[in-house]
Design a protein around this nucleic acid. Structure first.
Lengths: 349, 349
DNA sequence: GGCAGAATTGAAAGCGCTTTGGAAGACTTT
DNA sequence: AAAGTCTTCCAAAGCGCTTTCAATTCTGCC
């Protein structure tokens, strides 16, 4: 059933039917009702392609998710982020176009998206410390919102970010307050912007207390369980090993826990751990007392807000860039406790 | 830059330019070369919407991923599945349209997809034991491939599935061979088709040995870490508790491990565990000796094959339904060992 | 009753592309 | 030289919708 057929059945022109369905005012209430009824009776849905060709808007948003060429790894937070964003799109009648593009091909891909006109806007995932995509998108004039930031500039584009620096400063300070002095950082890939900020927060906390930064206790890589395990295992085997870990995601944190327990150590007693928790739906760290002490921020919620921001930009392309910095809550769970030395003196006292 | 402008610049008609770019034979080699050069020089990309309106093909594939209304949970295997499928689409010039739709709205959503003509075909995710979507899609004539199967029929639609029954039969038999008699099954949501087949395999293995099925050792729910933990904890606390677990995904398996270790038990020694491993990129269970003994099948590979199947159906809609049953490998890892009783006698002997 | 102005409706152009049905020119064939 | 056959190109229709501009019908009011 298309417009032509429907209007024929109703004995009206396509113009009127179109107007009635799209809520234009110059249609009488009775005809509108008649049209709407018929449309739902015949299950009429306008053809999206024709509609977007006519309006010049594609009613679709692009999400380009980078896939590391190294491990073909897809960051598992995307599933939840997209679920959040998708909810917003569904309500507003937008479709979501997903593409999984190798790191190296990102720029060309964004350029093509713009010229082919497949989408009205894009969400930029996984920004690097220095990321060419921001300049590129500003250049071609495709509306976009960055989930995260880049170090280069913050003012001339739309972004939503978690206060990564603040969160990791707090996480590290919390461990310092518990008496830990050798604190390891299990971070994401080094050139990711979020990883740089987290490291900054971690280092700032140490420096505030006049502690030096031990580069042997800092690791950067893709955040898999195996990476968390292998790194923690290596660090725990060394002399002067850490008594606490700050970990960039619950996934490597699971690996860290495995390494700790494999050594016959007890998590939260012998070794402490604070994780960054994106509130992944399949790994809820939200018992009354959470498994992991964590700085927590919902990635699904982030997806929602990003989507809303983007739709606003599309509606009003002239509006000045908006920024949104989410704070992460520090939730105390089972994985942290006083540093062993301190614990000893506490128990003796 | 659009076709009209480009053809003007070249002093050719739109027809000729279009044909030259789309590889039609009735264009001389010299003109074609001239056109192709100009197109790349001006960075011309045909407008997708116009193209699909003209051809009647949208060059897009829909993935509708169901989100449980109960927990707003997104199954984490989708990320990897879609990465696999996306690779195939990219090579063939297709776009991927993703929608996240509540369980309850699935049928209407598929119907809309068909009538709006946004996609040329869909992948059906998460089929239930009895699933109305198969009949619906056959009805509206939208090409589709099911990732999984339904119990109702297997012959009249395209599907790719893992041999879930076989995998769980082998997993359970393997534990029985190790002397385990009380084996628990931590399964997915009961009305999912894969969960039913896995349970069948588990039960068949027990029955083959004349063992009765203890319903108190069977659990069904969404496969989160917390679910694995809570269920294992409950089961281990009961009298006549299981000495082994068969778990439908590595995610709840992590929770099961947590429960086991919390009891002061040792995984692989006191309690055994076999998991189903989808080879998630962020949780590689592929060390020389894997963490978990597992029946393994790559969900990313499944995504690839599903995508290829679907593109074939779209190219040749008359072709008879194709089926593909992947076998899962049983990989022995650290999480299994002889049943405690058996171990005792082994050690004494 | 007649008329201005508002309220409705419709015809047709246009969005950017593909594709049908010719047409013009070059090249053979008779 | 006329007729036929390729080869190469083009004009124009059409995909299903929106939207401009114009036409028609209703109002209210004098």
């Amino acid at each position: 059933m298309n417009l032509k057929e429907l209007s024929h059945k109703l004995g009206l022109s396509q113009t009127t039917v179109s107007r009635a369905l799209n809520g234009y005012p110059e249609v009488s209430d009775t005809t509108r009702q008649r049209v709407v009824d018929a449309a739902s009776r015949y299950n009429y849905q306008p053809n999206t392609r024709a509609k977007s060709l006519a309006t010049g808007r594609s009613l679709a948003i692009g999400h380009v998710i980078p896939v590391s060429t190294k491990h073909e790894m897809v960051n598992p937070i995307f599933a939840d982020f997209i679920a959040g964003a998708g909810e917003v799109y569904a309500q507003s009648g937008y479709d979501l176009m997903l593409s999984v593009v190798a790191d190296a091909d990102q720029d060309q891909y964004y350029r093509d998206l713009a010229t082919r006109g497949t989408v009205d806007g894009v969400i930029v995932h996984g920004p690097k410390v220095s990321d060419s995509r921001v300049a590129l998108l500003n250049d071609v004039g495709l509306p976009f919102v960055v989930h995260g930031r880049t170090a280069m500039s913050e003012s001339d584009y739309n972004w939503l970010d978690v206060n990564n620096r603040g969160a990791f400063l707090r996480a590290t300070s919390f461990l310092l307050d518990l008496g830990h002095r050798n604190i390891a950082l299990i971070n994401g890939v080094e050139d990711m912007d979020f990883a740089r900020r987290r490291r900054e927060g971690y280092e700032a906390a140490l420096q505030e207390r006049g502690l030096s930064i031990r580069t042997d206790l800092i690791a950067h890589d893709e955040m898999t369980e195996t990476y968390g395990y292998a790194t923690a295992r290596r660090m725990l085997a060394a002399s002067d090993c850490p008594s606490a870990f700050v970990v960039s995601s619950v996934i490597p944190a699971i690996g860290v826990r495995r390494a700790i327990e494999e050594q016959g150590l007890s998590l939260g007693r012998d070794v402490s751990l604070v994780a960054h928790d994106d509130e992944l739906s399949y790994f809820r760290n939200d018992a009354e007392v959470p498994i992991f002490t964590a700085v927590r921020s919902s990635v699904r919620e982030a997806g929602k807000i990003c989507a809303e921001m983007l739709l606003n930009v599309i509606d009003d392309p002239q509006s000045p860039p908006k920024h949104r910095l989410l704070e992460a809550d520090l939730m105390v769970g089972r994985s942290t406790g006083p540093a062993p030395a301190l614990r000893q003196s506490l128990e003796q006292g």
